[in-house]
Design a protein around this nucleic acid. Structure first.
Lengths: 201, 201
DNA sequence: GCTGGATGTTCGCAGTGCTCACATCGACAT
DNA sequence: ATGTCGATGTGAGCACTGCGAACATCCAGC
């Protein structure tokens, strides 16, 4: 785990940098990430990080990607014990909002990066979206739901959860200081409200 | 408009700085704002800006405050010609989302700053919120709405509009590249969907 | 055993936020 | 009219940053 002799080559600098950067982002936000400081902390020269990342943005991208994958895995875990598709979807929503409330800066980094990296987040979001759309079709075939455009319903729901998460991340006055338990309840109540509007019970 | 003789004192440096900074934020984002560059552009020495703002953050705060006030005024204008309270509220929602889609960086700056400046944005948001709550009570008294907690309804609606705006600002894959006309339609459709869930027609 | 590519180092450039001592100016009291 | 004082601007400078280029070191495969 620890290098016994500080050899010339670090051995796993790239990994170490991502770990350190992720911690800094989580604690202080992306603006606080400094290549030089990271290098110092990792016990390496100021220029070394640039052997692994062309620039600062690339490091942040790497962090974002890792976080996105972790979040994805988390959502998978959470839905594992649900058999009902509806409760699956709700569990995902709750976990999503909860993650945002527990790691605001990481959550923001991931979505901020979606601006430039059109691709890599899309796959994860699609997962949740497709699950919801399947649900909607299911409900419509059973005659339980009105024939509103499923895409619109899905998008509206997406906006609702994303908005909830964002309000928490941005410390919006109405939700600032919510415990993650409160966040859980709010997410549930809000989606219930919307879903009752759509026709889901 | 233009200073005929470049006198020792600029005359309205503070104002000029805010204007310039606002433009930069709108075009390139807050990270691109540089005190020195602004000073250069304004034809003043690098240290001069610090006579008016203790640090960079204070300048950005000033910009954010100005933008917030403008947005507030815009929402007022938009609701001026509506007599019906419901259409008033919908007009506000649409204008809010539209502003976000037209000036993503400014919109983000305003809400990002809400993190530290607990106070100054709250008043503006409260306006919209109170208008909606009044609407809800009105509906409930008329027996048109179920007796769901009005606060919850309001918060859910807030989350929906904020989420829509945020998705656009963050170029979320599902809404990226929307024209502001499309944004208008989406905002309307989504709020309709939610409101039909609540019981508003 | 030599060599080439990956990785790390040193040095340096240009740019940044911010501070401090000093300059300049308008306003106002004497 | 003159002197002074506070608001505003200047210049030099510190500590820091991201990043580039030339050089060092080490491991792997010929």
């Amino acid at each position: 785990m620890a290098n016994p002799l500080p050899s010339y080559h670090h051995g796993s600098l790239r990994e170490a940098l991502v770990v350190a950067a992720r911690r800094v982002v989580d604690d202080l936000g992306p603006e606080a990430v400094s290549m030089r400081a990271l290098a110092r902390e990792t016990g390496v020269s100021s220029a070394a990080p640039f052997r692994h990342f062309p620039d600062r943005g690339a490091l942040l991208d790497a962090v974002a990607e890792q976080v996105a994958q972790d979040l994805h895995a988390r959502l998978d875990e959470v839905t594992a014990d649900c058999d009902d598709a509806l409760t699956q979807f709700r569990a995902m929503t709750v976990a999503y909002v909860r993650f945002a409330s527990e790691h605001p800066a990481l959550f923001e980094l991931v979505h901020r990066r979606a601006i430039d990296q059109r691709g890599f987040l899309g796959a994860l979001d699609d997962d949740r979206r497709l699950k919801l759309i399947a649900l909607i079709y299911e409900g419509q075939n059973a005659g339980l739901l009105p024939d509103t455009d499923p895409e619109l319903i899905a998008l509206t729901n997406e906006a609702l959860t994303y908005g909830l998460a964002r309000m928490i991340v941005d410390r919006h006055p109405r939700v600032s200081g919510l415990s993650s338990e409160d966040a859980r309840k709010l997410a549930l109540a809000a989606t219930h409200l919307l879903q009752s509007g759509i026709g889901l019970t």
